[in-house]
C-alpha cells in the first residue's frame, strides 16, 4: 500500500482537480481529503455518505460566574489573552487548562470540544474519507491525522494499492500532519513567482520530514520563462518534474459540471494527467524495487 499526498504551498494551483483525475485513473485506491478547512474534493466525486462521526478534540475553559471571586489570576496567567472580564473567549482559548488548574475558587471547568465531523463515503471510483472542521476551530492537524488513519484502515481492509490524499495549502500544521510517513509528495505548482516561492517552502518541509517529492507544473504555458525557472530549480534540487499540464478552460468547465477533468472530455490536459499517473506509478515501483 502506497500513500501519495498532493500539496502545493500556494492555494489554487489545481490540487483538487488533479487528485480527482488521479482517482479515476488509479481505480484501485482509497481517497482522503486532508484539506479539512475547505474541503472541495467531494464536489467532483458526488459521494454518498456511508458513515458520519463527530471529531472531538481539545478543550475550552468555562468560568462559573457564581463561584468566580474575580481575583484575576486567570487573566494574569493566560498567555493567549482568552479571558476578558472574567469570561472565556472561546476562539482564543487554546485549551491548555492552566486557568482551570490554578483557579483558587475552583470556578473553572474544561469542556470537550466537538471540533468537527468526518465522513466515510462511497464514490464511483472508491471510498472517500473526508472531514469538516467546525467554523473557527483549531486542531486541524489532528483531524487530518484522523482522516489519514481511517483511510489507511479502509485501504488495508479493501486490500487496495494506493491512498491518494488531497492536501491543504500552506506549510503549517495540517500540511505537516498530512505529510508524515507518506510514500510520496506530489507538489503541484504553477509558473507564477508566488507559485515558485511557495513551492520552495513546501519542498523544504518535505525535505525536513524526509518525504520523497515530485513536481507537476500546472498551467505551464501561462508563463514559459517561469516554467523553465521551475525546471532549473527542480534539476538543481534533484527533484523530478513529472508532468507539465497546459492551461485549459476545460478544467474549470469540468469543475462546473462536477466531474473530474479526465472524464469530462478529450481536453488537452487529459493525456498529461495520464502521463503524470504513469510516472507516479513507475516511481513508486522503482522505489519499492530499490528497497528490496
Amino acid at each position: 500500500m502506497k500513500e501519495i499526498i498532493v500539496l502545493s504551498g500556494k492555494g489554487g494551483t489545481g490540487k483538487t482537480s488533479i487528485v480527482a483525475s488521479l482517482a479515476v485513473l488509479a481505480q484501485n485506491m482509497v481517497l482522503a481529503d486532508c484539506d479539512v478547512d475547505a474541503a472541495d474534493l467531494h464536489l467532483l466525486l458526488q459521494p454518498s455518505v456511508r458513515e458520519k462521526h463527530d471529531f472531538q478534540s481539545g478543550q475550552t475553559a468555562l468560568i462559573d460566574g457564581i463561584k468566580c471571586t474575580q481575583c484575576g489570576l486567570c487573566i494574569e496567567l493566560c498567555r493567549f489573552n482568552a479571558i476578558k472580564e472574567f469570561k472565556v473567549i472561546p476562539t482564543f482559548c487554546e485549551g491548555c487548562g492552566f486557568c482551570y488548574r490554578v483557579c483558587p475558587a475552583d470556578a473553572i471547568i474544561m469542556q470537550n470540544n466537538i471540533a468537527g465531523q468526518y465522513f466515510i463515503s462511497d464514490t464511483r471510483f472508491g471510498t472517500l474519507v473526508h472531514a469538516r472542521l467546525g467554523i473557527a476551530q483549531e486542531n486541524s492537524g489532528k483531524l487530518v491525522a484522523l482522516v489519514r488513519q481511517k483511510a489507511r484502515e479502509l485501504a488495508k481492509e479493501q486490500k487496495v494499492e494506493y491512498i491518494i490524499c488531497d492536501g491543504s495549502p500552506g506549510i503549517g500544521c495540517p500540511v505537516i500532519s498530512s505529510l508524515s510517513g507518506a510514500d510520496l509528495a506530489l507538489l503541484v505548482t504553477e509558473p507564477t513567482l508566488s507559485g515558485i516561492h511557495d513551492l520552495e517552502r513546501v519542498l523544504g518541509v518535505c525535505r525536513y520530514f524526509n518525504i520523497p517529492a515530485m513536481v507537476c507544473i500546472n498551467k505551464y504555458d501561462i508563463n514559459e520563462d517561469n516554467t523553465c525557472r521551475i525546471e532549473d530549480y527542480c534539476l538543481a534540487q534533484q527533484v523530478k518534474v513529472v508532468a507539465k499540464i497546459p492551461f485549459d478552460k476545460a478544467v474549470t468547465e469540468a469543475i462546473m459540471q462536477g466531474v473530474p477533468v479526465v472524464s469530462y472530455n478529450n481536453s488537452k490536459v487529459s493525456p498529461q494527467i495520464k502521463l503524470l499517473w504513469q510516472n507516479i506509478v513507475t516511481e513508486l515501483k522503482f522505489k519499492t524495487e530499490l528497497r528490496k
Partner: peptide
C-alpha cells in the same frame, strides 16, 4: 491565509 481555522480567525 486561506482556510477557515485558527490562522484565519
Amino acid at each position: 491565509p486561506p482556510g477557515t481555522s485558527c490562522p484565519v480567525v
